[in-house]
Design a binder for these strands. Sequence first.
DNA 1: ATATTTTGGTTTATAATATAAACTAGTTTA
DNA 2: TAAACTAGTTTATATTATAAACCAAAATAT
Lengths: 94, 94
Amino acid sequence: MFKDLDPLLHSQLRLAIMSLLMTLESAEFTYLKEKTNSTAGNLSVQLDKLSDAGYIHVEKSFKGKKPLTTCKVTPKGIKAFEDYVTALKQYINK
Amino acid sequence: MFKDLDPLLHSQLRLAIMSLLMTLESAEFTYLKEKTNSTAGNLSVQLDKLSDAGYIHVEKSFKGKKPLTTCKVTPKGIKAFEDYVTALKQYINK
DNA sequence: ATATTTTGGTTTATAATATAAACTAGTTTA
DNA sequence: TAAACTAGTTTATATTATAAACCAAAATAT
């Protein structure tokens, strides 16, 4: 009846992150922090989880002298997001 | 940017319960248990939470000699569900 | 009749999760 | 050169989801 909702995506902050990344070529840590209204700590943890799952790719470099963390959704992440949306629609489309 | 998702509804089991109740006049405990594939314990706890929030009304009676728990969504619950769906669409409609 | 299992739940213990607070390392500004 | 800011990470805490353990009554089997 109801398909399971991927617990990795069924989390407000991780969903917001993925939602943003689905529409962008890539996004910086500070951009995601601002757009999702999250604390740096929370964002850092959730990015790690998405990265560990292989849903996003995180690259650490430098912009001038400052650290720069850049995130990009992976094909696996895109598939997971799409599947999640499909599953979710069973719950909300009545 | 992203509206908050009502944490009471952003839970797989509670969302499934509400989803069912949105389309039914009312539903029995055993029916919800079967349709949501949940354990009785988990279902009982989540129904209490929805009830405490005023999202559903729970009535305990008897069917013959057996206990019967009947659930119904309230106007407040309908509103909350609709608001949740609206908010959620910001995350998934791209 | 009386154990035994089943039904319809509730209560409680545990494990997982989300989140912010505390921290780090380097950089800019006063 | 001290203070404050940037860009994060690590860790502690509080919340949450979930199943296990439990309960009372009813149905079934012996």
